[in-house]
Design a protein around this nucleic acid. Structure first.
Lengths: 189, 189
DNA sequence: TCATTCATGTAACCTGTTACATGATTTG
DNA sequence: CAAATCATGTAACAGGTTACATGAATGA
């Protein structure tokens, strides 16, 4: 039941609408949790009913009206309570890993193509996270920001995201290279 | 629907019982997919009914009887078909990340403790993966094994697991250190 | 004018988790 | 003698995904 807490954590820094939240939790940009728009709208409704967030209507004439949400005192308390609970161990579930596990029994060309594709995705994310980090620390050095910056939570999760994607990139490239070499060795000429 | 393919991939190297599979997919040892015993028994039943795996009863007098499963030709074909499908992008869902995201609003001591705990888990896994890798390559060097070894699929996924946990370890330690420093700076004396 | 973005949902479905059940054997 | 390991499941529930719906405004 961590989705609600992820939503609360996302609303700490800024007031957001369901739509904006959905963009933050999107696969392409989520650096600490992922969720679909449907889940978020449903969760926001529940959170509001329970008084953990408060919504206010913003009338727009050029755009459809929207509701912006803020974390309430009760919401903050709930988040703090959650922070003290035990973590469920995190697990691996990735299609690509399954395919690589079966590398010796499936079409290698296809695998190499998918590793290359994943590498490209990782590269794009690395640039995205890199830019986000630069934006957060502004003109300060990383060390300076980590010591004295306000709001370092998002910075830290973003650092993990960056390192994770760097790891993906390295592994995908290396694995693809190894598979290419073996293919060449097994079917020479 | 990748659980079935993960099961097929796990059965490629050796004939296993549901119980043995469950141990391989356990949180502590799963290097390419995680699942609970209940899921695995159910999935094995489905896979057998569909003819993708074949089970054979092994009678034991000292232990309860068990059923060992092998991948059939149809199963291999299904795995190969799966390997050619598009990957769903992998996403992040980790309680600890949510807590770190909220670092500036929750109890810092608690967070540091949890980061330290996670670091210890990562260390244990690093040793586990390291040992597994050594065992797989035997007396060969890594380069030699990657070039000419049979079954490199499991080796590659294990390498990713190792690097992932190393990344976790580094990040947990660094984040904890940063939070400790800031705590000291904000509440001196 | 057609696709994309803004903005918010409902409903059906599939997957994964939690709780529970059973029973024999080895290890401490 | 109690706990852990071997061995296999069922049932209820929570969480996440897919499909679908609506409607206005902007950009190509």
């Amino acid at each position: 039941m961590a989705l609600r807490h992820a939503v609360l954590a996302a609303l700490l820094d800024e007031e957001l609408s369901g739509y904006q939240l959905a963009k933050a939790f999107d696969l392409g940009v989520a650096n600490f949790w992922h969720a679909l728009p449907q889940q978020l709208y449903a969760e926001l409704a529940k959170l509001e009913k329970e008084g953990l967030v408060a919504g206010r209507e913003v009338v727009q004439d050029t755009r459809p009206n929207k509701r912006l949400f803020t974390v309430t005192e009760a919401g903050l308390a709930e988040l703090d309570r959650f922070a003290a609970t035990a973590n469920k161990p995190s697990f691996i579930r990735d299609d690509l890993f399954v395919k690589v596990q079966a590398a010796d029994h499936v079409d290698v060309d296809e695998l190499i193509a998918q590793l290359t594709e994943r590498a490209a995705i990782a590269e794009a994310k690395i640039e995205l996270w890199g830019g986000l980090l630069r934006q957060m620390r502004g003109d300060r050095s990383e060390e300076e920001f980590l010591r004295h910056g306000e709001r370092i939570g998002p910075y830290l999760t973003c650092l993990r995201g960056l390192a994770f994607e760097q790891g993906n990139l390295d592994w995908c490239r290396r694995s693809a290279a190894i598979l290419r070499e073996r293919r060449a060795a097994h079917a020479p000429r």
